[in-house]
Amino acid sequence: MIRHLPNVLTASRIALVPFLLWLMAEERFGTALVLCGVAGITDALDGYLARRWNQVTRLGAVLDPIADKVLVVGSVVVLAGQGRVPAWLAGLVVGRDALILGGAVVYQAVTGRLEIRPTALSKVNTFLQIVVVIGAILEGAGIPLGRVLGWGFVAAGITTAGSGLHYLLAWTIKAFSRPPASPRE
């Protein structure tokens, strides 16, 4: 069981998302903030334990970014619906992730092999998106952030667009520089 603890923590983070989204939709931002903290702790802990115990698995490598994306995309959509996050930012976040998912499918079809490694820009982007979500929740809880949150929206928007374009360009170059996939029998 301890061997699988990092993946259990990641799965538990995914399981927290519906509750977090419900809390935000119900405007129970104080409790939502606590749940965000729990999600953040499990995110840090699962990565630390996987590396510490040399238990980095393919499943964990897939589940961890899924957990981040489900949390961020769901939160941004709910918060945009309430007017707490700009609709343009929600559109960029959803569009980028749809682009990455679609690009992954096409890349797999063209090359026969898919390896998704997060880029430095993508990591910064995820961090900024999470900061923006937490900032919007803080404002919902009555802690005004004003211009700081506004600049956070801009920074997250720039990194979201840049990261999406970077993945698109990198995968396009990689796909066309490789020999075609051999037909499967």
Rank of each mutant, 00 (worst) to 15 (best):
P180M: 02
M24E: 11
V73D: 05
T160K: 02
R96L: 02
G162K: 07
R84S: 14
L9Y: 07
L114T: 09
E27Q: 14
L71H: 03
Q129W: 02
G30R: 14
G37P: 01
I14H: 01
S75A: 14
N7W: 10
W88P: 12
L45Q: 05
V38W: 03
D46W: 03
T10K: 01
V76N: 04
V148C: 08
L145W: 07
E139I: 04
L149G: 03
V94F: 01
T10H: 00
G112T: 01
I134Q: 04
L89G: 08
L35M: 09
S177N: 14
V154K: 09
T42M: 09
D97R: 01
H4V: 14
G152S: 11
A25K: 03
Q129T: 05
A136H: 04
L23C: 13
I66S: 00
G91C: 15
V131I: 14
M24D: 01
V85G: 07
M1H: 10
G112I: 02
G140A: 03
L35Y: 03
W22K: 10
R52C: 04
V70H: 02
I100M: 14
Y167S: 03
V73N: 00
D68L: 00
I2P: 04
I143Y: 13
R28L: 13
A80W: 05
L121A: 14
T119A: 13
L35D: 03
W88K: 00
M24L: 15
L35I: 08
N7L: 11
G146M: 02
V78L: 01
I173T: 11
A67N: 02
R28A: 15
G146C: 09
F127T: 10
V62Q: 13
I134K: 08
V78T: 01
A156T: 01
L89N: 11
D97P: 05
R84K: 15
G135T: 11
A11R: 05
Y107G: 03
L101E: 00
V78A: 06
R178K: 13
A67V: 04
R58E: 15
W22R: 14
G47N: 12
L49G: 13
F127R: 03
A156M: 00
N54D: 15
D46K: 07
I134H: 06
A11H: 06
A155F: 08
F153D: 04
V62C: 07
A61C: 11
L149I: 05
V94M: 05
L59W: 15
L16M: 15
A136I: 07
L99R: 08
G135N: 08
R178E: 10
V154W: 10
L35E: 02
S122K: 04
V148E: 07
G47P: 11
P179C: 07
V62G: 08
Y167T: 02
R184K: 14
I41K: 05
L114W: 05
R84C: 12
A109T: 12
C36F: 07
I14E: 01
T159E: 07
F176S: 11
V34Y: 01
L20H: 02
V8Y: 12
A181G: 08
I100C: 11
L59A: 15
W151R: 09
V154D: 11
A120T: 14
Y48E: 04
Q108K: 10
T57P: 09
P6E: 12
L169K: 14
I14P: 00
F153M: 11
V148P: 07
P65T: 00
R3G: 15
A104H: 02
R184N: 10
L20C: 02
A181R: 15
E139Y: 05
D68G: 01
